[in-house]
Write a protein that binds this DNA or RNA. Structure first.
Lengths: 242, 242
DNA sequence: CGGTCTGTTGAAATTGATCAATACCGGTGG
DNA sequence: CCACCGGTATTGATCAATTTCAACAGACCG
C-alpha cells in the first residue's frame, strides 16, 4: 500500500501520525509534492537554496556551529523521517547543517510545502506538532548541558536518540546504532572527547550502557530513563495541563 | 494612532515588523482578538488553559524545569512583546512557565489566534518568523551552555537580553534592568550562584560589564559581542545563504 | 529594628580539561 | 594474507574551572 524504495514517506508518516491524529488519506497530499532525492557523502555540509526543505531518507544529519577558535557545538540531530527546514539557518552563516555519514535527503520547495499544507489542514496540525517536538528536543539539550552531570548527559542523550529511532523502526528494543565518533558526541554534550571516553567507561562499569562496535546497548532503559528523568516521546501527545 | 495603556500591542508590532515585513493595516487584524489582561505576582506559575496563548505586556516570564533533587534549569525568558504559547508545555507537567517579578499578561484563545492568522496571511509569516527567533534564542542557549566559559556565558546572555529589550524600547544604549537574582541567573547559565557572583566580579574587574543595583551596564557592547561571538538579532532577517 | 532573602568571600573537594603517549580498528595496497 | 596507515579510542598525569560548604555582610521589607 505504501510505496517502498527509500522509506522516507513511510517514516515521515509514522512520525507525524504519532504526534497528531492523521489519516493515510490526509497524508496522501504529500504525494503531490515535487521532490528530488540527493545523495550526500560523509560529513558534507548541506547548503539549501533560500527556501528549501528536506526530509531525511537515510543517514543522520546535524546542525552545528563553529567558533573562531575551533570550538564546535552540535545542536541537534535529524534522523530518518525528520523534516529539515533549511531556511532559518541564516544568521551570518554561523549555523550549519551537515551529514554524519553518507545520507540521502529528499528536497522540495518551501512554497510547494506551504501550498500543500494549505490544501490539507490536518497536515498543518501535524507539522506544527513536529515543530513542537523539535523545540522540546532542543529544550532537552539545554537541560542536559545546563544541569546534568557528564554520565547523566550522555545517558539522557542516548535515551532520546533511541526513543526517536525506535519511533521510525530503526532501533531494537534495547539497542541502536550510533554512527558518530566520541569527538562529535563530546561536541554534542559539551564535554571533551577524552572525558566522553571516561564517561562511557563509567557507564559500562555500572552496567547502565554497553557497547558493541558502534552499537549502544541500553541494559535497562526504563530505570535509566527514570534515573536521569528522561521523558519518553510517547508521553508528549498526552493531554495538556489544567 | 496606537492605543496606549499597557503597550503590548505596540511592542508586539515593533517586534514582528522587525522580523518580517508587516504593515500597520496587516497588524490591525490583531484588534479583532478577544483578549483578557491578567496581573501576576512575583514568581507565580502560569497555568494556561489547554489551548491558550499570551503576550507579555509587562514584566518578565520564564520557562523552567525542576529535577527531583532540586536542580533547576531556566530555558528562556519572555520579555514584553513576546508571545507565549502555553499549549506545548505538556510533557508530564515538567516544563513550567512563571513570572519573574510582578507581570501583566494578555491572554487569548489559540483557536481565535489561528483564525486571525487565517484571515491575514502576513501575520502567519510574521508569527512564523517570531517562532524562528525563539528557536534561535534556544540555540544560543545551547551554545552558551555547551561551549562557552562562565564569563562568556553571562556576557553572551546579557548581550542577548539587552538586544531583545532594546528592540521593544526597554533598554538604553548601554544598559538594561535585569530583574533576576544571581541564583536564577545561575540556573540560566548552568553555573552555581556562588560562581555567578565570582564571574560577575571578574567581568567588572575587566571593565566588560558594570552593575548599578539591578542594572547591567555594557561598557562596550560592540567589542563584547565580537569577543563572545554574539550575533545581533538585527542580522537575522538578512538574506539566506546561497 | 529585626528578619529574611540575596550577594560575597574563603577554603577544600570535585569535576572535567589538557597534554601526551599508547592501543586499537578498519581499511588499503603490496 | 599481511604490513602499514590514518583516524579513533583509551589511559595516566597534571592542571584549571567550578562546586560545595560555611560564614558573613548587605539590602530590602514590613
Amino acid at each position: 500500500m505504501v510505496k517502498r524504495l527509500s522509506g522516507w514517506r513511510e517514516k515521515l508518516y509514522i512520525k507525524l501520525s504519532h504526534l497528531s491524529p492523521l489519516s493515510e488519506s490526509d497524508f496522501a497530499a504529500v504525494d503531490t509534492l515535487v521532490w528530488e532525492s540527493k545523495s550526500y557523502s560523509r560529513q558534507q555540509d548541506i547548503w539549501g537554496a533560500p527556501a528549501t526543505m528536506a526530509v531525511v531518507a537515510e543517514g543522520w544529519c546535524y546542525r552545528y556551529r563553529l567558533l573562531e577558535d575551533g570550538r564546535r557545538m552540535v545542536f541537534n540531530y535529524w534522523l530518518p523521517g525528520d523534516l529539515i527546514n533549511l531556511a532559518p539557518l541564516s544568521p551570518g552563516l554561523h549555523f550549519r547543517t551537515a551529514t554524519v555519514g553518507t545520507a540521502e535527503l529528499v528536497h522540495f520547495s518551501a512554497t510547494d510545502f506551504s501550498e500543500m499544507c494549505n490544501a490539507t489542514p490536518e497536515l498543518v496540525t501535524a507539522f506544527a506538532a513536529s515543530e513542537r517536538l523539535d523545540g522540546l528536543l532542543l529544550a532537552n539539550q539545554v537541560l542536559r548541558l545546563g544541569r546534568l552531570s557528564a554520565p547523566e548527559r550522555v545517558a539522557h542523550l542516548f535515551l532520546e536518540l533511541w526513543d526517536r529511532l525506535r519511533l521510525v523502526g530503526l532501533a531494537d528494543s534495547d539497542r541502536f546504532a550510533l554512527p558518530i565518533t566520541y569527538g562529535m558526541l563530546a561536541d554534542t554534550v559539551g564535554l571533551s572527547n577524552v572525558h566522553v571516553s571516561r564517561t562511557m567507561a563509567l557507564l559500562r562499569e555500572n552496567r547502565m550502557v554497553g557497547t558493541d562496535r558502534r552499537t549502544i546497548i541500553l541494559n535497562d532503559p526504563e530505570s535509566l530513563a527514570d534515573l536521569v528523568e528522561y521523558d519518553p516521546i510517547a508521553k508528549i501527545d498526552g493531554e495538556d495541563a489544567v
